[in-house]
Computed example of a mutant assay.
Amino acid sequence: MKIVIIGGTGLIGTKLAARLREHGHEAVRAAPSTGVDALTGEGLADVLAGADTVVDVANSPSFEDAAVLEFFTTATGNLLAAEQAAGVGHHVALSVVGTERLPGSGYLRAKVAQEDLIAKSPIPYSIVHATQFYEFTRMIADNATEDGAVRVAPVSFQPIAGDDVAAAVGRVAAGTPLNGRVEIAGPDRYRMDEFFREALAAWDDPREVVTDPHARYFGTELEELSLVPNGDAVLGEVHYADWPGRG
């Protein structure tokens, strides 16, 4: 099976390509650095020729509200049109658990717009909603830092390893289109402020973690279940305590 990975040189794209190749698939990593740019449409027709499935794990270079909306709507529109012309039979997209619950986040509003385009397209599709990646823990802490302290809400948090994300997306990509969504999350659920308190201690990071019910997460306040699966979810295997990058 020929599977084209848009965003194939990034964190998840690289892991996904390796896993698909291990299972005998032709995994093509597509990105601007390989001559394929979904935002402009450059290279799409050539790379999609003969493709069975397209997996979109690309991310916006900017999280500013207008820029991220422009990225996801334009790139997804270009990609879906090119897939339809090439006869691609399955579109897979990686998105975020809680997109529909956090309208105050410009990034997640853009992901909702992306998902709407995919669902309305005639191409059979699957959308994988993932929780936050272990690999982004430091970035989340930095984004939450105000006046030298990390301000975090006391809400549920269930992050997942990038390897587990790649494994789950790979299974979906090689399978039958869901024409719907599946949620994936890490094996353990934490209270978010306590998780970051322990994470910073493991990094020997001197910043204080302040529990703040009104702390904003990338521009929006959180409710208890904003960031965790709503019902059944596929759980990863790697515990954060065992993850090599935690220290």
Rank of each mutant, 00 (worst) to 15 (best):
A86K: 03
A202M: 12
P177G: 12
Y217M: 10
R171A: 01
A153K: 02
V68N: 04
P154A: 10
S156M: 15
D205M: 03
G43C: 14
D188A: 13
G7S: 01
S105C: 10
W243E: 09
L69N: 01
A215L: 01
S121G: 09
D52M: 14
E135T: 13
A86C: 08
V55L: 08
G13A: 07
T73K: 00
T145K: 08
A51C: 00
K15W: 05
A30K: 06
G13N: 11
Y217W: 15
E42M: 10
K120F: 09
D116M: 00
A18P: 10
I123T: 14
M139Q: 15
T176I: 05
G10M: 02
V169H: 04
R101P: 06
I123V: 14
L69I: 02
G35V: 13
F157Y: 14
A167Q: 03
A75D: 00
H239A: 01
S33L: 10
D204W: 10
T137M: 06
A201G: 14
F195R: 13
L108A: 09
A27C: 10
E70D: 12
G41D: 07
I6E: 02
H90A: 05
P229T: 08
R109Y: 01
A38R: 07
M192W: 15
Q84V: 12
G24D: 07
F72W: 02
R246T: 01
I140F: 15
D65T: 01
R21A: 10
D46R: 15
P61Q: 00
E223G: 09
A199M: 07
W243D: 05
E224G: 07
E26M: 15
N230Q: 12
A30P: 06
A166R: 00
A110I: 08
T131G: 02
L11S: 13
E146A: 09
H239N: 08
D147L: 04
V238G: 09
S105T: 00
D147H: 11
K2W: 08
G87R: 06
D52K: 14
V238K: 10
Q84C: 08
H214Q: 15
R151S: 10
D65G: 06
I118G: 05
V88S: 07
G219Y: 02
G186T: 03
